[in-house]
């Protein structure tokens, strides 16, 4: 079923919307959650919560792209759950490594943490991604949005793990330079 029809089902308050969403994007959402949580049970709970959030959001919201609408909800819910689990010392998955890597992008200094600055960072990220070659951009997004492991990325793109690691290293360096130029301290 195409996305437009699924969204119509949500708008009509038909519970088939959840069935169709699960059929089409269940595996995708599970992937997003599992990459963060590394637990089938936790991932499944996040995916179910995602459907509930979608049900509550549509209407009035009408997503432009259902896949990423669901993916972003799943990612946020999974990160929240990961934080809770980590506080209970049960956190696993790629997050600790991803956070270590992202720390390399963060210029030194005090952070302002304002909504305006978040907007500036989003704009820098947009420009940064636009300038990256297609494959580098995909690798960056796979690592830091999907939190896929380096090995998995290497396998999908037919590269060695070392090549992926070097690509990511250079991309992080470039992002740090751009953030520094704008005097952003994340």
């Amino acid at each position: 079923m195409d996305d437009g029809k699924i969204i119509e089902l949500y708008l009509d308050r038909s519970e088939q919307a959840i069935t169709e969403t699960s059929r089409k994007y269940g595996r995708y959402c599970h992937y997003v959650a599992y990459s963060i949580l590394r637990s089938d049970q936790d991932a499944e709970e996040c995916v179910n919560d995602t459907y509930l959030r979608a049900w509550n959001a549509i209407p009035p919201h009408r997503p432009r792209r259902l896949q990423t609408f669901l993916g972003k909800i799943t990612r946020n819910l999974s990160l929240n759950r990961w934080e809770k689990l980590s506080a209970e010392r049960r956190g696993a998955g790629q997050i600790p490594m991803v956070l270590d890597e992202l720390a390399e992008c963060v210029p030194d200094g005090e952070s302002a943490e304002s909504a305006v600055e978040d907007m500036v960072i989003r704009d820098i990220l947009r420009r940064f991604l636009r300038r990256l070659p297609d494959e580098t951009r995909r690798i960056f997004v796979r690592r830091y949005w999907y939190m896929s492991s380096v090995g998995e990325i290497a396998k999908q793109y037919g590269l060695t793990e070392n090549q992926v690691a070097v690509t990511l290293f250079r991309a992080r360096k470039k992002l740090k330079t751009m953030l520094e130029k704008e005097d952003i301290r994340v």
């Binding site: 896949q67 972003k72 956070l99 949005w145 999907y146």
Partner: peptide
């Protein structure tokens, strides 16, 4: 944590990049 803030902001990337890099995309 600053890097965590960046991780959350990355979560709001443009849809097209997220779809383009999706597993098995």
């Amino acid at each position: 944590m600053n890097n965590k803030r960046l991780l959350y902001i990355i979560g709001e990337l443009d849809d097209r990049y997220i779809v383009d890099a999706a597993p098995g995309a």
